[in-house]
């Protein structure tokens, strides 16, 4: 696959995500799960990482999210050298600059929709500060994001999270990931619980919101039907061969 052909010619310093020779082995495991991966991701770019399950795509996302630490190689995310930072500092970078969307069960069932949306603001002072600089109250910003993704907080009213359809839950999760201006959105099979119609609607909304906010998007999926929505598609195998 010639997916890497579009890789930018700009230097790694301008990139939002840049990894070179990135490898990861679970503690105690014989063989590394990921080996010599190279990837460069720029602001505003939307990239699909495609491949069958069990290849380590989710592990790769965990590395980019700073939840796992690479075994070897270099990894820079949003200007931070994740190899040099400790777990606490990587947690902080994630809270400030990375939004995560899971396959499903993104929302905490015991919190209201609005409280779920506002969670990242509670965890990150950086996100708080960015909203403050825009002069937007967190509630207003959350409402605006949700409506950009095609949902109305007012229409949903006081409905509990469990009463939302999966499609609606994924939109709320996407809005939450984007709230407070993170620069990188990581999505792990965000459409696998959706039917084709909902899937396409969700991806279109996510892509629009991401483009409008200039964030980079890396989405992991096994589904080739997602490809048209992204600027480019890569596989783990292709990332191994690439020089960024």
């Amino acid at each position: 696959m010639a997916a890497g052909a579009q890789a930018s010619s700009e230097g790694p310093t301008r990139a939002l995500v840049h990894c070179e020779g990135l490898s990861f082995r679970w503690p105690g495991a014989e063989a590394p799960t990921l080996q010599h991966l190279n990837l460069t991701l720029h602001a505003g770019e939307a990239v699909l990482l495609r491949g069958e399950s069990g290849q380590g795509k989710s592990t790769f996302l965990s590395l980019l999210a700073g939840i796992l630490a690479p075994s070897s190689g270099s990894l820079t995310v949003a200007g931070h050298d994740f190899h040099a930072l400790g777990q606490r500092q990587r947690d902080r970078v994630r809270g400030a600059d990375i939004g995560v969307i899971f396959q499903q069960f993104n929302l905490l069932p015991f919190l209201s929709i609005l409280d779920n949306l506002l969670l990242p603001i509670r965890f990150s002072t950086e996100r708080q500060a960015r909203l403050h600089a825009l002069g937007a109250s967190p509630e207003k910003a959350a409402e605006a994001l949700l409506s950009a993704l095609g949902l109305s907080l007012r229409a949903l009213g006081n409905r509990s999270v469990g009463a939302l359809s999966v499609g609606q839950q994924q939109r709320v999760a996407a809005a939450r990931a984007l709230l407070g201006g993170p620069r990188l959105i990581l999505a792990d099979e965000p459409t696998s619980a959706l039917d084709p119609k909902n899937r396409d609607a969700f991806l279109r909304a996510l892509k629009d919101a991401q483009t409008a906010r200039g964030a980079a998007l890396l989405c992991v999926s096994h589904d080739p039907a997602l490809e048209p929505f992204f600027d480019r598609t890569v596989t783990l195998a292709a990332l191994q061969g690439d020089t960024p």
Binding site: I67, R88, D91, R92, G95, V100, F102, N106, L107, L108
Partner: peptide
């Protein structure tokens, strides 16, 4: 575990 994973994703660290 799900709850913990969501909180982790939002930036919650070990101390939190």
């Amino acid at each position: 575990r799900r709850e913990m994973a969501v909180l982790r994703a939002l930036g919650a660290g070990f101390p939190t």
